[in-house]
Computed example of a mutant assay.
Amino acid sequence: MALKINKTAVKEAKAGDKPQELRFEDGLILRVQPSGVRTYYVEVARGKRVRIGRVGTVTPAMAAEAAKRLSVKVMGEGVEAVMPVRAITLEKFIADVYEPFVEHEHRRGKRTAEDLRRSFADLLSTKLDRITSRELDAWVRGRREDGVKAATIAREANQLQGALRFAVERKHLKVSPFDTWKAPNVPQGNVERYLTTQEKAAIRKALSDRDRQQARERASANKWRRERRYPELPMVADHVMPMVLVLLNTGMRYGEVVKLEWQAVNLTTRTITVVGEKAKAGRGRIIQLNDEALKVLTTWRALTNRTTGLVFQCDGEPIKSIKTAWKTIKKMSGVENVRIHDLRHDFASSIVQRGGSVYVVQKLLGHGNVSQTMRYAHLADEQAAKAVALLDGHKRGGR
């Protein structure tokens, strides 16, 4: 007959050379470690137990009540209803559980899994039960800083919501954070943010200053390591400055630059070929390189000594984010309220203001419809108005 637990039984449970267990009613177990730590468990099935808590935090009466409650639940709902969920990371869940399912059930299943990895790269190493409202709020802020539109953020959030709902169904998660999280309104703000000549100069100077600072810090670290006969760190070239300058001079999307490979860069013909499968909506295009972009890529190729693979990489892997570096650059330059995506807007506006056709800009940006590019048309109108105003000067001159 099983014993009833009481304070005396718990107090008399002494530590030995090996872990010991005392068994009580309703499957309640008191496990005593050689260190003296005593912990309550409830055995709900052969080889399956649920941890209640340690002696001192949980009283004997509380442990007995928990054991009785779990026993009743097992009888009514089964063992799985009380077993703790073993949380896995989002990355492992997608690879081992979700991707095989959606790939089999949906035509775009593989693309959905890839979208999740790309959109939630910063959360891949997070365990499912640690993805909370706070993490989702931070994710929204980060996506907006990257220049992602509100509609895209909403679509990406819906994809994760579906994945986590499936995680709950498959017992990898008890409750989805989307049950209590409400996606905040993500204002678009002034998407047509253009840079002045002074702002561009300040950003270029900040990039150069940061690049030299990175080199000095690495050299200082290696000096310290040499003095102590530690292995030196490799003097690698920093990717932030060339990436930003390529973005500024080509109008490419951040995601396109991250995926850019040397095979798509032709320094002889001064072109970059954005292949369809790596472009938004699958639309490819050819971009002409101006003098600065050509110089940046030529120098970068010489520094990295690579002619194949990704143009910008870290240990052979794509660059995930330069948000931290971009914040530093904004602070150093004094240029505020500018996102990485605004470099694309500035590229387009600069061409239009210098007389370039809206239709040329459409091709360079890879817009599927010219209506997307017409946001820059008013800049051409402004330039035309200034040109016509020059006639007034001729009249005042007596011509």
Rank of each mutant, 00 (worst) to 15 (best):
M1I: 06
K4R: 12
T8S: 09
A9M: 10
A9N: 08
V10P: 13
A15M: 09
F24R: 08
E25A: 14
R31H: 11
V37I: 14
Y41F: 15
V42L: 12
V44F: 10
R46W: 13
K48T: 11
R49I: 12
R51W: 13
G53T: 12
P60M: 08
A63W: 15
E65D: 15
A67C: 14
L70G: 11
S71P: 14
K73W: 07
M75E: 14
E77Q: 14
G78F: 09
G78H: 08
V82S: 10
V82D: 12
R86S: 13
T89G: 12
K92V: 15
F93Y: 15
F93T: 10
V97K: 10
E99Y: 04
P100Y: 02
E103V: 09
R117F: 04
R118H: 08
I131S: 03
T132H: 00
S133P: 10
D137R: 08
V140M: 05
R143D: 06
R144C: 04
E145V: 02
D146Q: 12
G147N: 02
G147H: 01
R155C: 01
A163I: 05
F166C: 04
E169P: 02
R170F: 07
S176L: 08
F178C: 07
D179A: 06
D179T: 10
R193I: 07
R193G: 06
R193K: 05
Q198M: 03
E199S: 00
A201I: 02
A202R: 06
A202K: 05
I203Y: 02
L207W: 03
R210Y: 06
Q214V: 08
R216N: 05
A219M: 10
R225A: 06
E227G: 12
Y230V: 07
E232C: 03
P234F: 00
D238N: 12
D238H: 11
V240W: 08
V244N: 07
L245S: 04
L248Q: 11
L248R: 11
T250V: 09
G251P: 08
G251Q: 07
M252T: 05
V257G: 02
V258G: 05
K259S: 14
L260C: 09
T268G: 04
K278F: 07
G282C: 06
Q288H: 09
Q288V: 06
K295A: 11
L297D: 03
T299N: 10
T307G: 11
T308H: 05
F312R: 01
K320Q: 09
K331E: 13
E336M: 05
V338N: 05
I340F: 02
L343H: 04
H345A: 04
H345L: 03
R354F: 01
G356F: 01
G356M: 01
V360M: 01
V360I: 04
V361D: 00
L364F: 03
G366I: 04
N369T: 07
Q372F: 07
Q372V: 07
T373I: 04
M374S: 10
R375G: 08
D381C: 05
E382Q: 15
Q383S: 14
K386C: 10
K386A: 15
V388H: 10
L390S: 13
G393Q: 14
H394M: 15
R396D: 14
R396T: 15
R399G: 12
